[in-house]
């Protein structure tokens, strides 16, 4: 068991949560991170789907890594990822149809989510299946974490709800409190992620860029 969770493997699993976060540090997978975060529920489902796809894609391609000719590897990767995404898409349609409707094209866009392609290229093609699985789960969770944080702020301030339940009592609104509609529109997640990056780098000064 100790070999399964050696330092290197623990790093593969836990690194992406903060020090090597896919959204904040590697700047991967931004598109969907922004689009699905107006409510907590779709953000949560999206984070989970990406974790599943990323983990399985990493394992499969790590198993195949010595048999794929280098020239056609992108196509092979895309086919494996697309097959996994179709499975996820069908499962979502079967069990959480309303969320799947809300996510609309963004489920399909998991295929072109750079987190998955990026981790396959950077990690799975050079490592054994077990560390690749941990790396996939870690990156998926790191991504899901940012999604949930952004969605929490947007849903709370934009609609006054969390997971669809009202948080602020009616009395607040009677006193003149208003939901901030701008939170639900396109620009706010960009600015929120900008602020999260700011906080994250202020805490980790070694990541500051010099330009």
């Amino acid at each position: 068991m100790s070999a399964l969770f050696s330092d290197k493997n623990r790093q593969a699993l836990l690194g992406p949560l903060s020090a090597n976060n896919p959204v904040l540090v590697q700047i991967l997978g931004i598109c969907s991170a922004l689009a699905v975060t107006s409510q907590l529920k779709p953000a949560f489902v999206m984070g989970l789907s990406v974790t599943v796809v990323c983990a399985f894609a990493n394992v499969i391609l790590s198993l195949l890594r010595n048999t794929i000719p280098n020239r056609i590897r992108i196509i092979v990767q895309l086919v494996v990822v697309a097959a996994l995404v179709i499975i996820v898409d069908q499962v979502l349609k079967a069990f959480v149809y309303d969320v799947s409707k809300q996510l609309s094209v963004y489920v399909g866009l998991i295929i072109t989510n750079c987190i998955i392609m990026g981790r396959i290229e950077a990690f799975a093609l050079a490592n054994k299946p077990w560390p690749s699985l941990l790396d996939g789960i870690g990156n998926g969770l790191g991504y899901g974490m940012i999604l949930v944080i952004v969605a929490f702020v947007r849903e709370l301030l934009g609609a006054g709800t969390l997971f669809g339940f009202k948080v602020f009592p009616q009395a607040f609104y009677d006193w003149g409190y208003m939901n901030n509609g701008l939170m639900l529109m396109a620009p706010m997640p960009l600015i929120l992620i900008g602020l999260i990056v700011w906080y994250h780098r202020a805490k980790n000064p070694d990541m500051i860029e010099n330009n």
Partner: peptide, 19 residues
């Protein structure tokens, strides 16, 4: 501001453009 340099300020500018 130092921690915003690079990607942070880019996000915020994109947000302002989106507005």
């Amino acid at each position: 501001p130092a921690p915003l340099r690079g990607i942070g300020i880019t996000f915020i500018i994109t947000g302002l453009m989106a507005i």
